[in-house]
Design a binder for these strands. Structure first.
Length: 525
DNA sequence: AAAAAAT
């Protein structure tokens, strides 16, 4: 279905066309008509399939610009996401003259109050700042007709729920409520439904929860070897842009430092950094002034950054839902991507929990050796140098390598110069600076209920336990079969060949020799 | 058990 087949006004369609959108995605096709009718909708679809436009377009359509009232409210889990959604809504509503404001913590409330006073039809905000503005009577919600929870399952989660309830209690009961997310656990959906009237749950049916545009890999690696393993893989993969997710803010700081030492253009983003820095880092990453964004889960959800080809889960995500969102930062809008999740031997149980949620097996991957990484880097540098030498401006390019460049350039052949530049560009793997990432206390493992804790409580304990045992036995069976058929093995070799032109088998790591493919949970005996 | 979110 095409956008111009929706019952949308000409000024919206003009902006849609300007943005180059023609064909609506399935979630858009199914939710836009419902939302235009005024129905309450839960919209669930894979990451990167255009959920913002799905709730944004019908919302914009219904705004009466001649009235200077706030008619729609969007609540988002992070400040960056609030900014991004505001920008997208503004873009589509531009011709129509819709005023969209974003409000969030960490930046001047005075400015935001002024902006609200200058007129707003749609407000996009994070919970804390919204409540603050409501208390100061700078934000009136009595004219709201559409309420949207972006990343709805996160907004209705513990930690946010109380604030959300407080905000919703100020919004008129007679309203339309839209909930959107890629993930929607049943327990959370039940909470959400309480704020809605006869909601339609549009769930784009897919075998897997994650998009098939992302190739999902995991590497089983000891904690102490993780950093080297990741940087080598990055050298081999040569991502355009990549995001590295760490478990804690401190960890993100360490990883950022380490990656910088290794020569990557990397910056970190997490909740302890001041808001200017957070926005600056994100902007630099989008502009291509950075190659690697190192992040906590603050960047896991919603952020739409084109050019992200690789997501590295340096630490395995805390919640299986977080995994779905993290890897959804790549493989967006029809483009493909890769995710690589690093799993230490005692975390293999988490891998299983994630796979249970996504209904998708990650492929095992062998670490690349230092030599392989070095060769890969060298190839890339050589290509770049060759390109430079083909260019007329080779001398100006060469000059940055030293005072005598002009002299050297006249005395040596292009090949000799190339070798010289290469030696300056690519470091020998043995001389790489050492980086140590502090070991954190291991994740607590709670096998109950299939989640990472917090679920399965209440009167169903016995059932949960039986389910769990059954699931576990199934898992073991599947894995053993895989091992016999060698399908997993084949996956590994298929990937290895990318790294090994000589087809030699990379050496086994000791941990793999030890445990093969058997899953070891703490709960298992 | 961590991160996010107001100051």
């Amino acid at each position: 279905m095409k956008f111009n087949e929706f019952n949308l006004s000409a000024d919206l369609l003009a902006e849609i066309e300007k943005a180059g959108f023609v064909e609506a995605s399935p979630i858009q096709e199914q939710t836009i008509p419902l939302a235009l009718e005024g129905k309450d909708v839960i919209g669930q679809a894979q990451t990167g399939t255009g959920k913002t436009a799905a709730f944004g377009l019908p919302t914009l359509e219904k705004i009466r610009t001649e009235e200077a009232t706030i008619q729609a409210l969007v609540i988002a889990p992070t400040r960056e996401l609030a900014v991004q959604s505001q920008e997208e809504l503004f873009r589509f509503g531009r011709s129509k003259g819709v005023k969209v404001r974003s409000v969030y913590g960490g930046s001047s409330i005075e400015k935001q109050i002024k902006a609200l006073k200058s007129g707003a039809h749609i407000v996009v905000g994070t919970p804390g700042r919204l409540l603050d503005l409501i208390k100061r009577k700078a934000l009136k919600l009595q004219d709201i007709e559409t309420l949207i929870l972006d990343e709805a399952d996160e907004m209705l989660n513990m930690g946010f729920l109380e604030d959300i309830e407080a905000i919703i209690s100020r919004v008129p009961e007679n309203r339309q409520t839209l909930l959107f997310s890629a993930t929607m656990p049943d327990a959370i959906k039940r909470i959400g439904v309480q704020f809605m009237k006869e909601p339609e749950h549009v769930k784009i049916a897919a075998k897997e929860l994650t998009t098939e545009l992302v190739d999902q890999y995991y590497i089983r690696v000891k904690e102490q070897e993780k950093f080297d393993t990741m940087t080598r893989l990055m050298d081999v993969d040569q991502p355009e842009l990549s995001i590295v997710f760490g478990r804690t803010k401190r960890r993100v700081d360490e990883l950022t430092r380490g990656l910088k030492i290794r020569g990557f253009r990397a910056e970190g983003i997490h909740g302890d950094l001041d808001q200017n820095k957070r926005l600056r880092v994100l902007r630099d990453f989008k502009n291509g002034n950075l190659d690697v964004l190192v992040a906590t889960d603050v960047a896991a959800r919603g952020l739409d950054i084109s050019g992200v080809t690789h997501v590295y889960n340096y630490d395995i995500p805390q919640d299986p839902e977080s995994y779905v969102h993290r890897i959804g930062r790549t493989g967006r809008a029809g483009k493909s991507g890769q995710s690589i999740t690093f799993v230490s031997p005692n975390e293999m149980g988490y891998l299983q929990i994630i796979e249970n949620l996504t209904k998708k097996r990650m492929k095992g991957l062998k670490p690349a050796s230092a030599e392989e990484a070095f060769q890969a880097k060298k190839q890339v540098a050589l290509k770049k140098i060759e390109r430079d030498f083909a260019n007329e401006e080779i001398r100006s390019n060469f000059e940055k390598f030293g005072k005598d460049a002009r002299q050297l350039a006249s005395e040596f052949s292009p090949e000799e110069l190339a070798m010289y530049i290469l030696s300056l560009t690519v470091q020998d793997p043995d001389s790489l600076p050492e980086v140590e990432i502090a070991r954190e206390k291991p994740l607590p493992f709670k096998p109950s209920g299939g989640g990472f804790g917090g679920k399965g409580k209440g009167g169903r304990r016995g059932d949960d336990r039986r389910d769990r045992d059954r699931r576990r036995d199934n898992r073991r069976g599947e894995r053993r079969d895989d091992f016999k058929k060698g399908s997993r093995k084949n996956d590994r070799f298929e990937k290895e060949n990318r790294y090994r032109k000589d087809n030699k088998k990379p050496r086994n790591t000791s941990s793999e020799k030890k445990t093969g493919f058997v899953i070891r949970n703490k709960g298992d005996k």
